[in-house]
Simulated scan of single mutants.
Amino acid sequence: MFERYQALYLHLQGTSAEAIAPILDRSAKTVKGYAYAYCLLSFVKMNIFLSTRSWIIGIPWIFYYIRFFLS
């Protein structure tokens, strides 16, 4: 479980998945999966918390993660 937190910490600091993978001894695909799961959970929580009209606030985060996964 600690490696997921470490991966997310490094990711949020701006480190690429390819640079995180050797640190954790995991593939870049796995690191991207950790980040994607975090993004999805955060987006769901935000949508539950915010009113239905405010869901548009989460759209920039989706574009950020789409760009991250395509890199």
Score class of each variant (00 low, 15 high):
Met1Phe: 10
Phe2Val: 10
Arg4Gln: 12
Arg4Thr: 10
Tyr5Ser: 11
Gln6Pro: 02
Leu8Trp: 00
Tyr9Glu: 09
Gly14Asn: 02
Gly14Ser: 02
Glu18Ala: 07
Ala19His: 07
Ile20His: 01
Ala21Cys: 08
Ala21Tyr: 05
Ala21Gly: 11
Ile23Leu: 02
Asp25Trp: 08
Asp25Lys: 13
Arg26Gln: 02
Ala28Asp: 02
Val31Ala: 00
Lys32Met: 05
Lys32Gly: 03
Tyr36His: 11
Leu40Asn: 10
Ser42Leu: 05
Ser42Gln: 07
Phe43His: 06
Phe43Lys: 06
Val44His: 13
Val44Phe: 10
Lys45Val: 10
Met46Gln: 12
Met46Lys: 12
Asn47Lys: 15
Ile48Pro: 15
Ile48Arg: 15
Phe49Thr: 15
Phe49Gly: 15
Phe49Met: 15
Ser51Arg: 15
Thr52Asp: 15
Arg53His: 14
Ser54Tyr: 09
Trp55Ala: 12
Ile56Arg: 13
Ile56Ser: 12
Ile57Gly: 09
Ile57Pro: 07
Gly58Trp: 03
Gly58Asn: 06
Ile59Thr: 05
Ile59Arg: 08
Trp61Asn: 09
Trp61Glu: 07
Tyr64Arg: 06
Tyr65Met: 08
Tyr65Asn: 09
Tyr65Arg: 07
Ile66Val: 11
Arg67Glu: 13
Phe69Lys: 09
Leu70Gly: 11
